[in-house]
Design a protein around this nucleic acid. Structure first.
Ligand code: ZN
Ligand code: ZN
Ligand code: ZN
Ligand code: ZN
Lengths: 167, 167
DNA sequence: TTGGCCTATGTTACTCTATAACCTTTCGTA
DNA sequence: TACGAAAGGTTATAGAGTAACATAGGCCAA
């Protein structure tokens, strides 16, 4: 393996969570938008691990945490906010949502998705974004948003499927 | 504009349709799989233009053409077959399906999608596929399937939105 | 500090997308 | 012609997302 993405290796995930939440707080403060309790709670749930979560899974988690029913619009509105602020990405392949590790930097949505363990690894490859823009321009196309979703096996699952599901 | 994708220019679309259907017939014959009336009909409907169609839109079109109700599983089974054979692609961004112009050649699903006129332009860029595989390999990831969905404005819509909706 | 406004959340009902399960028909082959 | 497999029909239901309207909470100006 050339380099192990953090999502794909054993690591202190509490660190991922606290970093993400702190970044979100700073970002919202700086932009003058409100990171309400609900929005923060949804973001925290999404960051529970590196696997994309569906809106209805989040709904159940919210309902359990708050010991009351939570309806779809509640969670979708929070998700919409987080998407707008770039704090999460939507994985179209899975109808699911995942936290963005670098919400401060404007970038495209490029993911590696393991169909064995379910993790989604966000790529940070501006060069790839540029390449895609170049290819599009050759066709006279004006790019607004890219979504690259590569499915396959992550490093762990490729070497030992049994182990990686526990991460 | 550097080169105009056929989907994006005025062209004899009947030619697109007949080419696609003939290619499908040959491909299925060669593989020993059955291109039934229903499957052919769905493929033909999908090739109606270069815009992805949803399963429920196809259902209605089928119902109208056959003057009887058509239930979801009917169309989804046909779509599954066409997907398996590589005769169509699924656009996750739109929950919709579009005909593949080169089903004979194994390739990845790379699309430019215009949000103004709705057309989807399939890219043919093996070099881009390789680049993506390379980037994934650097993360120890074994690629099985790529889905690149770029949204923005096609050449027509970028220059004159009013015109292009009529293509 | 109060009133009013804007934003966020709650609630109900609904649409759109997709699949499970089971039955009937059709097709190719023995 | 009879049989087994594959395809299609039917009903019901799961899963994902939104519309529309009511209520609550924060913010600011008078
Ligand atoms: Zn982590
Ligand atoms: Zn994995
Ligand atoms: Zn055409
Ligand atoms: Zn267009």
């Amino acid at each position: 393996m050339e380099y192990a993405p953090i999502a794909c290796s054993h690591h202190d995930h509490n660190h991922c969570i606290s970093d993400a939440l702190e970044a979100a707080r700073q970002l919202c403060l700086g932009r003058g938008v409100r990171l309400t309790d609900l929005r923060l709670q949804v973001l925290e749930l999404i960051w529970q691990n590196h696997k994309p979560l569906g809106a209805y899974t989040l709904m159940e988690m919210l309902a359990r945490a708050n010991t009351r029913r939570v309806a779809p619009p509640t969670v979708y509105r929070a998700l919409d906010f987080l998407l707008e602020q770039g704090l999460i990405h939507r994985i179209n392949l899975l109808n699911a949502f995942i936290g963005c590790p670098s919400p401060n930097i404007k970038h495209q949505s490029h993911f590696l998705i393991c169909h064995a363990c379910g993790i989604a690894i966000e790529l940070d490859q501006p060069e790839l974004s540029q390449k895609i823009i170049g290819v599009a321009q050759e066709a006279g196309f004006r790019v607004e948003k890219q979504s690259l979703e590569v499915s396959g096996l992550c490093a762990n699952c490729a070497s030992d499927p049994a182990v990686s599901t526990s991460i």
